[in-house]
Design a protein around this nucleic acid. Structure first.
Lengths: 203, 203
DNA sequence: AATATTCTTGACCGATAGGTCAAGAATATG
DNA sequence: CATATTCTTGACCTATCGGTCAAGAATATT
């Protein structure tokens, strides 16, 4: 019944590569801003293959969201301290201001939050959940920093995490139309100061 | 030649009312997210009238932008001090979190900055200019506050204005997917603290 | 080699996108 | 009242939207 007896014709494309291409297109243009035809062109797959393999446009976007949140970039956290991890991340997204504007595409999750947040769409709650997980990641960094004595235990972790989240949001999204590194650094440092550390990002 | 000899048939609609309806639709749905048919429905005008009166879709959006930035809301600034004006504004946009999500549509200019910022479109530079004017307005408030001795003269007005701008951005845009007033108030107060005032927004 | 199963392909669908235009309706002026 | 001018209307255009489907191509199993 559930045997793998019927492999029949194998798919000719690499699922991970295709997923990446789909994710990158949605990341650059958003959900509404991306057409099925563009997805067909960028993946090289025909429309029928896309639909039979992954489903409709919403399903493709969900694939992109999952891929975006997939197991990546987990290399840094072992070597660096939590506060260094945070500062490093902020520095990294500040440096996106140097990219040509077509590549300053912000954060896929935050872009999606802005696009879907105040609409009724099947993916809205999923996006909001993923965003909350991001915020919780910041919270874990803050709490670890407290444990290590890098910041005061009097800091409210949840509030600080929310401000970290807002700081990242501001940097990544305002970068689209105000890509000034001194400005973005000031935003980041204003947050770092608010959690009582002397650590700063350079400019 | 340039006489008003030919009034001929007068238009049957009120230009200001129509402009408001156009602005509100674009504000709610964005440029790409608004169709000409929806503009036809909401204005009550037929497509031909819209085009002959105002021009194409970009021109209609420009009309909306101008209307959004038009002479309104200039009542408060005379009575209140600059810092009170600022805090009042922050309080006002924080309270948008109480609205139903379909009405939490952010700021038209900032929405447009996000939608157009990293694209090539004829309106991109205009939008960025209008956003800069907003920032300059914050700057004038900060400088006035310094003159009145409400905040220290050591504060960098331009940097503080940029942070005020970023604070407003964060509140208005994150409100779409994270409409938590405690959170938004904390963002606002974190800014107020950064300019060295004891004034705070309530929650 | 025959068959069952899956993958791929391209034509096709109705709906909607932004935009045009000619003809008719309404009015201020001569 | 006739006319010039403007406004309004609805039909129409091409392009693209998301989505479907039947037929053909490729493979693992019998």
């Amino acid at each position: 019944m559930f045997d793998l007896v019927a492999m029949a014709r194998p798919r000719e494309f690499d699922c991970e590569i295709v997923s990446d291409k789909i994710m990158n297109l949605f990341w650059a243009n958003g959900f509404e801003g991306t057409s099925m035809d563009e997805l067909v062109n960028v993946t090289g797959l025909k429309k029928g293959s896309l639909y039979s393999s992954f489903g409709n446009k919403s399903r493709l976007f969900e694939l992109a969201l999952n891929r975006y949140c997939g197991p990546k970039n987990k290399k840094t956290s072992e070597i660096l301290s939590p506060l260094e991890t945070l500062a490093d991340f902020l520095t990294k997204i500040i440096n996106e201001a140097d990219l040509p504007k077509s590549k300053r595409r912000g954060c896929l999750l935050m872009n999606s939050g802005l696009e879907f947040g105040n609409r009724d769409h099947e993916l809205t709650s999923k996006i909001i959940d993923l965003l909350k997980m991001r915020e919780q990641y910041f919270c874990s960094l803050i709490e670890e920093a407290k444990i290590r004595g890098e910041i005061s235990k009097k800091i409210n972790s949840q509030k600080a995490a929310a401000r970290a989240f807002a700081t990242a949001f501001t940097i990544r999204e305002m970068c689209k139309f105000k890509p000034e590194k001194e400005f973005l650094s000031d935003i980041a440092n204003s947050f770092l100061e608010s959690i009582g550390t002397n650590k700063r990002v350079g400019l």
